[in-house]
Design a protein around this nucleic acid. Structure first.
Lengths: 116, 116
DNA sequence: CAGTATCCTGTTAGATACTG
DNA sequence: CAGTATCTAACAGGATACTG
């Protein structure tokens, strides 16, 4: 990957939480730390591939902490770092906005193909 | 497009501001209304295709208003609706977060291919 | 349980050329 | 100026099968 140059803060933020799943994963971690399987249940529709991929990227940026317990069966717990918590807080207003206008958004985004 | 069902507010919000450009376009409109060409200059790197496409989608959701002036040469001005303004406000903390941690993010996201 | 490894597809976005 | 049209590349993401 090339040197990234962001043109504004939003650009950088979107680069980090962008994609279909990261914001939701972050949200799922905002109260407690969770195991891989737990997360999978908490983010409905996500595949194992996308879950681990998103987690790894967020771990690389320092948003998420991964703790391995060497037990049988294996246990791995994911949690937010301080950095992750701060991002989550920054994301909160957006989440509320989406919540509030969900119906309107859903309606606007499903009537794309005119009937007939 | 199928009926959309969002699993949370963030999901819905990301569906609306997602992609590479929309958040930045919204931002570029947050102070004043702007013409097509102005926007292009204000969102560095965007192609005309992506600009118009993003604008149209945001117009369809009601975030952006498009005003055509029948002059020669043609003039079209884009501005935020009330709805767009509210989204922009919800986006502000995220923008600030990105601004604050830009360097860290850029560093974390460019060292992907190990040397040699 | 917590992943990896492939293969495959649809969508996103870039390039280029053209128009009212 | 403000777009449209077309083609193509790249990537995100899904499906499926396998592993320590």
């Amino acid at each position: 990957m090339k040197q990234k140059v962001y043109s504004c803060g939003l650009d950088a933020a979107v680069d980090v939480v962008g994609g279909k799943w990261k914001a939701m994963i972050l949200w799922a971690l905002h109260t407690q730390h969770r195991r891989f399987g737990e997360l999978k249940r908490h983010v409905p529709g996500i595949s194992e591939k996308m879950l681990i991929q998103s987690l790894r990227e967020m771990e690389a940026v320092g948003l998420v902490h991964r703790e391995v317990y060497h037990e049988v069966p294996p246990r791995v717990e994911y949690s937010l770092t301080e950095f992750g918590v701060s991002l989550n807080e920054a994301l909160e207003p957006l989440g509320e906005w989406g919540e509030k206008h969900m119906r309107r958004i859903a309606e606007a985004r499903c009537v794309h193909e005119p009937v007939g």
